[in-house]
Every structure is written in C-alpha cells, then in structure tokens.
C-alpha cells in the first residue's frame, strides 16, 4: 500500500470520527430535550399535554421516515444557508445532526419509559418541581441506558457518515467509494471496511464500559 493511500486512510478515519462525534453531539443537543418532552407530555406523565405530544411525535416520525441519502440532498439549500457550502465534512454535519436527532429523541423517550414510575411519584411526594424531577431524578437514573443510546446513535452515525461520503461528505466513506468502488482497488476498499469495523467495536466497547460504570442497580 502506497504512502499516499495510507495518508488518505488516516485523513478519512479522522474525518469520519469528527463527523460521527460532532454530529452525535448536535444530535443529542436537539434529540435529548425532544425525547424528554416526548416523555413528560405523555398521558399520565407530569406535564401531560396530548396536543404537544402528538405534534412532536408526528414530526419525529416524519424525519425518521426520510432515508438518509435523500435527507442529505433534500437539505442542501438549508445546509448551504448554515455553513455556506454543501460539500465536505462541515456540510455533512448538518444533515447528520438532523438525521440523528429524531432517532435520539425516541431512544431517550424509551430510556425514560423504562424507569420505575415510583421514582417520579416519590420525587413529587418529596416536593420536587418538574424541572428538578428531570435533572435530579430522570437523567441521573436513566444515565446508564442513555449511554447505551449514545453508543447505538454513534454507530448509526458511522454508517450514515460513510453514506454521506458517496455524495462528497469526505471521510472513510468517500475513500472507500472513490478509490475502492470506482477505482476497483480491493485493498483500499477492504482497509476502509476494516477501519470502520474497528471504529464500531471501539465505540461499543467504550459505551458498554461507561454504562456499566454508572449503573448501580
């Protein structure tokens, strides 16, 4: 393997890592509050609000039903307005974050749903306000399962970012597509696959360790 290919692979790996983690961060920034709101406004929850709940739920479902490759193209005008370009790593961050957010929202909602309902009841009986219930009860208690949700999201984003590579997003996806698929270079293509597998394994491993570390049940 030539040095230039190795350089490409290193650069690609770095770009993939950046895209995955930065869009994961922005995805959580949008998805976490949405997921909490989805949970709190459900029937029989502390901020029951059926209209808001249904509206949010429909929005989340719409965004989740758009295939990611189409979302990238569909969002081009918006992406341009925000980052000034529709090509490259920073341009890919926009659809990646927007694509991940509704997915994260559902994962967060599910994490919160799996908490014993008695915890909220006890906190209410002790005089906690809804805000205190969220940041002193729900989030700390759901932390291990939220960390699991984060690993699932990041692994999905590794895949999404590779998909984005095919339409000019950079990263390992682009290397694999251009040099491997178009250039019929089996070694490069398989190296890209190997690197993606390693990345996914590392994320899963770190997620499992962290989740266990915070789990005192």
């Amino acid at each position: 393997m030539s040095d230039s290919i190795i350089d490409l692979l290193v650069k690609g790996t770095w770009e993939t890592i950046v895209m995955t983690f930065v869009s994961g961060f922005f995805g959580f920034l949008l998805g976490l509050p949405t997921g909490i709101l989805l949970f709190l406004t459900r029937k029989n929850q502390i901020l029951e609000q059926s209209v808001l709940n249904r509206t949010l739920s429909v929005l989340v479902n719409i965004f989740r039903s758009i295939p990611f490759i189409i979302l990238i193209v569909w969002m081009i005008p918006f992406t341009r307005a925000i980052v000034g370009t529709s090509i490259g790593v920073s341009a890919a961050l926009v659809p990646l974050s927007i694509g991940a957010a509704p997915f994260i929202a559902r994962l967060v909602e599910n994490s919160l749903l799996s908490l014993p309902s008695g915890l909220i009841e006890a906190a209410r009986a002790l005089g906690a306000t809804p805000f205190q219930i969220v940041y002193k009860v729900l989030l700390p208690e759901a932390l291990p399962s939220l960390i699991n949700a984060a690993s699932i999201t990041l692994i999905t984003l590794v895949g999404y970012s590779a998909m984005g590579g095919a339409v000019g997003a950079g990263g390992l996806g682009q290397v694999g597509y251009q040099y491997g698929y178009i250039g019929y270079d089996a070694v490069t293509m398989n190296s890209v696959l190997g690197l993606l597998v390693i990345l996914v394994f590392l994320i899963q491993f770190a997620g499992d360790r962290l989740s266990k570390r915070f789990d005192h049940r």
Partner: peptide, 9 residues
C-alpha cells in the same frame, strides 16, 4: 412506599 422508590444512582 411499598417498593421504597430509592434513587439507584
């Protein structure tokens, strides 16, 4: 409560 409802974290 019957099931104590302590915070496990």
């Amino acid at each position: 409560f019957q099931h104590f409802n302590l915070l496990s974290s």
